[in-house]
Every structure is written in structure tokens, then in C-alpha cells.
Design a protein around this nucleic acid. Sequence first.
DNA 1: GACTAAATCCGAAACGTTTCGGATGCTGAT
DNA 2: ATCAGCATCCGAAACGTTTCGGATTTAGTC
Lengths: 334, 334
Amino acid sequence: MTTIKDIAKTAGVSVTTVSRALNGYSDVNEATRKKIVETARQLNYTPNTIARSLVMKKSKTIGLLVSGFIRESLKDNFMLNVLAGVNDFASGTDYDIVLFNTNSSKQREKTYHQLCRERQVDGVVIQGIKTDDPYLEEIIDGDIPCVLVDIPKMGPKTGYVSTDNVIGAYEAGKHLLGLGHTKIAMINGHDQAFVSQERLDGFQKALNEAGLSLLQVENGGFSEEGGRASLLNIMSQHPDVTAIFCASDLMAIGALSALKELGKSAPEDLSIVGYDDILLAKYVTPALTTVSQDTHGLGYEAAKMLIGMLEGKQPGKTIVKHELMIRDSSQQCL
Amino acid sequence: MTTIKDIAKTAGVSVTTVSRALNGYSDVNEATRKKIVETARQLNYTPNTIARSLVMKKSKTIGLLVSGFIRESLKDNFMLNVLAGVNDFASGTDYDIVLFNTNSSKQREKTYHQLCRERQVDGVVIQGIKTDDPYLEEIIDGDIPCVLVDIPKMGPKTGYVSTDNVIGAYEAGKHLLGLGHTKIAMINGHDQAFVSQERLDGFQKALNEAGLSLLQVENGGFSEEGGRASLLNIMSQHPDVTAIFCASDLMAIGALSALKELGKSAPEDLSIVGYDDILLAKYVTPALTTVSQDTHGLGYEAAKMLIGMLEGKQPGKTIVKHELMIRDSSQQCL
DNA sequence: GACTAAATCCGAAACGTTTCGGATGCTGAT
DNA sequence: ATCAGCATCCGAAACGTTTCGGATTTAGTC
């Protein structure tokens, strides 16, 4: 491993000069710079970023919290999509991404704050943590630049990027209402998710404006199985329901399969609309009416904001677009 | 930021002792260790891994090359799945993962070797690079611990993990043969992919054993659109074809949609079998017969081997299982 | 009481870089 | 001849750790 010292020695200058030459400072003669660059090339020199990080107190890396990064998440692709988005933006900069795991047992008691400090990341994007996570406050109030995805909270050093779940759900509600539905239930995620609260709010708002209210709300925990169970539950308690809004496509798909088991089918017997527009949504039969969100964009914008902050900008909030995708799982109420 | 020095000062010992105490060395009195640990806690100390890395010459991070990590890859989930697998294994260790981008323009001329050196990763898992990548040899012959996924090459410090594509394709061939097909074509990926070569070999082997040979082989570049185009091409040149083997599900899905455009349908008019068993495969209609490979396992095993190597083990090769999933897109030849 | 061995501690160097605060030499003006 | 100003260079400290080689104390043995 050749270092800056080696270059200095063989080029006959000091390490200071080598450093300054390689970093493009002005107070080094063009001739000596040439020589230095050349010997660096000959010695096959690559800078040691670790040493640089140590003295600069900047690591040029951003952390990505992937707490619940378990196999389950592979089906809906949420985390992976935002990861891809983060990566896509970061690849245009000189920042690298390091993945943080918090699910390992020994690290469990470490706070995010400690994790970040320890790995010396310059900033961090956080996703998928619960509203009641004890460490959330700590990071928001902390001094580590941070951007939250789908968690609408701000702090001195933390901004967030999200979609407008309230309006998205509102539009889903309007859609169902427009089709003439009045007996409507909802399968929500769980109470510790910000998006669940928002989607419930937005959907209810639409119903309320029409003088209606939800027949029933079940929590399906965002899982396919939870969607199945919730649908069964709803159908038994309210057999007259004609439409169900699901807070995630995965749950909607579960609901769809449960419906099939009951010998009924969508959209004839029941209109179903989902949320997320995951990859499967348009391939499943019937193709799912759902509100699409730009998950890749979430990650991309998160990285953009974070790196912006590292370059001196203030944290903010950015809302990425969503869109109601009307497909085959919802139809006019008979 | 409190350092080891601060602890030393307030605990009234030397930095050496603090270091040794915190790292569990034996030659420090239990009483002073207690004191040190306690003051460390009080001062909210977290070790600076960068400084540690600098002196230890180990960064406790592994790199993951995600060269073609573009949106396209989001649909088939290959890279993301292996990423998830790598992460899953790594989360049980004290290694972190850093994502390497090579698609950024300025980094383009840097070799993988330089990238690894620069970021000081202890090892790297590489996926998705072409057979003719000029830097592949460099990394294989190099001294950086490395494991390749789906690239069957070994070196002094490089092992690989893969599936048995030859047998997988062979089984696909046997399946089609068993259904009575004799007019068979193949849509392959591209010539610079190891898996393409292997899948072609395996499939041809099956046909040859039956005294048959391929009607036609098209390259679809692993994309949905490429699959469409290839199918159209094959159907026009060999209208009598009854079965097509695609080297990826994405291409198979493209082929399926092209078939539909022609007013034909699978499996009645044409049996189609894919490869990969991506998430969509079982949801698409008709559900795709395909050979499933454990992509998550690929990543998991890659991480396992790499970290094993970092702990002193020798590089090896590990083959993860595959399985022919017979679904609805293939049927008896009429 | 002297010597050995063990237990416990510490000073200082090292890792590879950046950067502050000069030092040196040269040019041209006075 | 002196000096200001500039261009070019460099020494040394600093970043926060780990670790080598030894120093000091204590306990045990004869």
C-alpha cells in the first residue's frame, strides 16, 4: 500500500506538498504538481479515505437504516425501492451508502444515535420505524443530519420526505363514493404507523363529506395474511359491505384471495382498492385499483435532501407525487 | 464528542489502560475496569471506528458492487434480493455493508480494485458484471477478498456462489420434452452473461439427449421488451414452434404479452418456461412455469463465504438450490 | 530479607492524511 | 542595498485509536 509519504520520498518533496498538489491547491508549482501526479500514478497510489476521514471529521458516507429489512419486505418492495432511490441519487455524488442493521441482537440496545456516531456517517436516512419507537425523539432532537421517510416530523437537523397520504386516501374515498358505494369498510395497517393514521384520516374525510362513515376498521398489520383475516372478519360482521379500502396492496391481495375462498369475487361482489401500487398490483387478477406512490422518488428525494443538508442547506419537507390508479378491482356499486 | 482521552483524564488512568479495559484485555484490574466502564457510560462515549480502522487496518465493512443498479433492476428483483441476503447475513455479524456505485461518470475509470482500496473495505461481493468486463481479471487475481455471484471463477482470494444453471436449464428441457414438445426455441439473455452460456448449454444438452436441437436462439437481453421482440422474431421465422424456453422470467413475461398480441395464448398455442421465479411469475396469467433460484440465498451465502474468508477461511464455491416450478404456462404438446 | 513471578499499569509510537503557520528565494520597485 | 510582495515549499501538530515494550507494585518462596 503506497502512501502519500512514499510519493513524497520518491518525488523529493514534502508530504504537505504532495497533499496539496493532489488536492488541487494553488500554491504548488505546476511542474512539481505534474511530477507528483505522475509518481502517484506510477506507484499506483490510492488515497486512504479512512485517514482522510479521521482528520477531516467527515466520512463522506450516509447511513441507511434498514431495521425491518427482513424477507417479508421483499414482497412489497417498499424498502428496497427507497434504497434504490437513495442509491441512485448518491451515485451521482461522492457519497457512499452504508446499510445499518438494528435487528441484530447485540446491537439492539444501541440507539440510532450511537450507531451513527460509531460508524461516523455524515448523515442518515431513516425509514420504517414505528411511531412509538423510543429512539425516534432522540434522533429528531439530535445533531446528526437526518431525513425521515414517511414520518412527518421535523427537527433542527432533520427533515422528511413523504407522500400526501391524507389526500391519497381521500381520493381513494372519492373514487369509491363516485362509484356509488355507501357500505364501506377499511383494512388499515397498524396504529404505530404514521401512514396508517393519515390514510385513515383522509379516507374518513371523504366519507364524512358525503355524510357517511366507515362500517368497520380492521388492522391487518400490512401483511397479506393480515389482509385475509381482516376481510373474513369484516364480511362476517357486515355482510352488506360493498367496498373495502386497504392501506396497502399486500393486504388488498390477501383480501382478494380470502374473497375468492368465500366463493365471491371482486369487483362484482366487492370493490377493493389498495395503496402503494406495488409491482404485483397490476398483474394480479383482478388488477388492483390502488394509489400509486413513487417509492423510488421517496428515496431519491431523501438522499437529495440529506446531501443538500450536508452541503449546508436547511432541512425541509418534500412531498413526492401520488396517483390514483383505477384498474379492475373496483366498479360501480350495483 | 468524547474520546478515550477524556475517559482517561476523568478516570485518572492512561489511555492505554482505557483502551485495554474497554476491549476486555486481561491485564487490567477489575476495579479499575469497572470505573472506566462507568465513566465511559457517564460521558456517553462511543468508540470512533474510523480511528480504530486506521490503526487496525480493518474497516469491518464489506462492499457490495451494484453496478447496474438502475430502475430496470427493480422489476426482476435479482440484485435487491441478493442485497437483502447479504444484509441478512451481515446483520448477524459486526460487519456493515457499503454500496458501491460504478455507474457514476467520474468513477467510471476507476477499477474495482481502486474502489475497494479507497473505501478500505475488507472484502467485496460482486454481482451483475459482464463476462468481458476488463476489470474482472484484475479483481480475481488481486489480493482483496472477494466473492462473485453467478460468475464461476476462482482465484487466490476469490470464491463464488451460484446456482447450477446447467442442471436447471437441463431440467427445464426435460420438462418440455416430457410434455411431448419437439419444436423448441430459446430466448437467451446476452452473450456476456455467464448464466446465459450455462443455461444454453444445459438446455441444449437435454435436447441433444433426445436427439433434438434448438430451432432458433434469440438474445433478449434479459428485458421484457427484448423478450417481446424475440418472440415475435421466432414466431415469424418458425411458426411451427410449440415451446420456448426463456433465460429469464422477465423475458418470458414479455414473450407472453407479445403472444397475446398475436392473438394466441399460452399454454394452448405455445408452452413457455422461464427462469428465476421472480415474484411476478406466479401472479401473471398464465402463471409461469419457471426454474426457481434462491436469490436471497445467493446473497446470504456470498456474505457468509466472504466473512468466513475474512476470518481466515479459504475461498470456495457454494451452489444454492434451484427448483423447477411447474405452473400453467406449459402443457402437453397437442 | 532477597529474589522471582505475576498483576497491573503506562509512555510513546504508529496508522495516513490535512492544515496552520511559517520559511525560503525571487522579482521588481524604491 | 533594502524591502515588499509573491510564489513555492515544508515542519509539525492533529485526528482517536491500538499496541509494543517496559515500569512499578505486590505476593510468594526460599
